[in-house]
Design a protein around this nucleic acid. Structure first.
Length: 443
RNA sequence: GCCCCCAUCGUCUAGCGGUCCAGGACACGGGCUUUUCAAGCCCGCGACACGGGUUCGAGUCCCGUUGGGGGCACCA
């Protein structure tokens, strides 16, 4: 233990740019990152773009943006496509030492093949215990494709060795590659990193999440940003999906995660992605955010929906204040304030039936129009006073007055306290909407 | 088919042989609060897959069964 701490930990995240960064990949990146930071080590990002057919620049961009959004700062970034000379070099060395040979295929052309160890290979996994497999009957391994590019197993091993990777954190689905890679490392004379194979993330129906089934779950990391999730919430959630600090602690910021994270505490069992829990966590982070910060986020989200925004800061801030504890995602904010930003309110038919149509409701609304008309100060408190006045004069409960008004003003039965809601809407618009609601009721 | 991995409430998990008639969180049900909805607080529901061992004692160790997942490319 003491000696271990003298060696600098180096981890890496090695995605291939053949698709958007998957949340499962994001979690792998997170675990690698957390472990490196926890150990005061280095975190390397390595783009494994050796598949000419499938690699795309847009995916590289997507991966970089995802990593950046999550706040996983890396110390180095490498592109395998820029290291071709290195792989060729090592392939030659393996041929010189007799461990690799050329093979010609009639259709595909010439490639280089590595003679794997005819042996039982094992390693002590950081997440599991000892894992091993007899690869003596496995076929030899192609290390350089006929297009001159290295195969995954080869480039990965060369880079892990050259970059001094001490801990490889990767998905469970790589377990079967590991013996071959170890065999390659031996032949190259490198030192084996410690492998930590983390469990996969599953859909609610237990299928592998990266196999896009007809689930409604989004798999692209950036989609969660677009849906209004906060990176700190996603990180916290992903961290908990397969790891726990050991106690009852659940809400942890990045610093805390770094402090507590160890590979030894990563679970072996695959975990189901539970959107409800993510939502809860996100809501919890939203509630904790400062009003100013949250307002910034909400403004950005609003701008994805509306091309231009004509609200002043004070009003927007007040809207955010009213909704802060009511939203689970930033997108919820857009939905919840739709009545404010659009002039043609969509009246929910159920709501209208229940709170506008009844005679009593209409009388109340008429009365409210009367009272509001003579108001100069349309503040929350004045509104509240007038509404309470009407309530007691009519011998009603406050809800019986508030709900018709709420439906008239917002189109729905749900909103922040009604006095605040219409105060920010303004007297003119409020009156207009009450009249509009009444006209609908008269049809 | 062959090989590998895994197995505690619906879900995420705590548990590393006795302190567990199994703890927490989300979800769900109920209540309080209340100007609707949230938020908050309280209560409830709810699990050690099964069968053998080992042991004075097993959720915890071993074996098997079953179940789930993953891998078997000149893809990563």
């Amino acid at each position: 233990m003491v000696q271990e701490s003298l060696i600098m930990v180096v981890t890496r995240f090695a995605p291939s740019p053949t698709g958007e960064l998957h949340v499962g990949g994001a979690r792998t990146a997170l675990y690698s990152y957390l472990y490196a930071r926890h150990s005061n080590g280095k975190f390397i990002l390595r783009i494994e773009d050796t598949d000419l057919e499938r690699s795309k620049q847009e995916y590289v961009d997507n991966i970089l943006r995802s990593i950046d959004w999550l706040g996983l700062e890396y110390d180095e970034i490498h592109y395998q496509s820029k290291r071709l000379d290195i792989y060729n070099d090592y392939a030659k060395k393996l041929m010189d030492s007799g461990r690799a040979y050329k093979r010609v295929d009639a259709d595909k052309g010439e490639c280089i093949v590595f003679k794997i160890d005819r042996d039982y290979i094992y390693w002590d996994d950081a997440v599991h215990e000892r894992i091993g497999r007899d690869i003596s009957k496995d076929p030899d391994l192609v290390i350089v494709k006929s297009d001159g590019y290295p195969t995954y197993n080869f480039a990965c091993v060369v880079d892990d060795t050259l970059m001094g990777i001490t801990h490889v954190v990767r998905g469970n689905d790589h377990i079967s590659n590991t013996p071959k890679q170890i065999s390659l490392i031996r032949a190259l004379g490198g030192a084996c990193p410690i492998y930590g194979h983390i469990p996969l993330i599953l859909n609610p129906d237990m299928s592998k999440m990266s196999k896009r089934e007809e689930t409604s779950l989004e798999t692209a990391t950036l989609k969660y940003r677009d849906e209004g999730y906060l990176p700190e919430a996603l990180i916290n959630f992903l961290a908990l999906l397969g790891w726990s600090p050991g106690g009852d602690l659940e809400i942890m910021d990045k610093e805390t995660l770094i402090k507590l994270f160890t590979l030894e505490r990563v679970n072996k069992k695959s975990a189901v992605f539970d959107l409800a829990k993510l939502k809860w966590l996100n809501g919890s982070y939203i509630r904790k955010k400062s009003l100013d910060d949250l307002t910034l986020e909400c403004r950005a989200m609003l701008l994805t929906r509306f091309n231009k925004l004509s609200v002043n800061d004070a009003i927007l801030k007040e809207l955010v204040r009213q909704n802060q504890e009511r939203m689970k995602t930033l997108r919820d904010f857009v939905d919840q304030t739709k009545f404010f930003f659009t002039d043609d309110v969509e009246y929910n038919s159920e709501a209208v039936k229940a709170y506008i149509l009844p005679d009593q409701s209409r009388q109340i609304l008429l009365e409210i129009i009367d009272s509001f008309n003579s108001m100069n100060d349309f503040s929350k408190d004045s509104i509240s006073a007038i509404l309470k006045d009407i309530t007691s004069k009519k011998g009603l409960k406050f809800v019986q007055v508030a709900q018709p008004l709420r439906v008239a003003a917002t189109g729905n039965t749900i909103s922040p306290p009604i006095d605040e809601t219409i105060s920010i809407l303004g007297k003119e618009k409020t009156l207009q909407r009450i009249k509009k609601a009444l006209s609908i009721a008269n049809k």
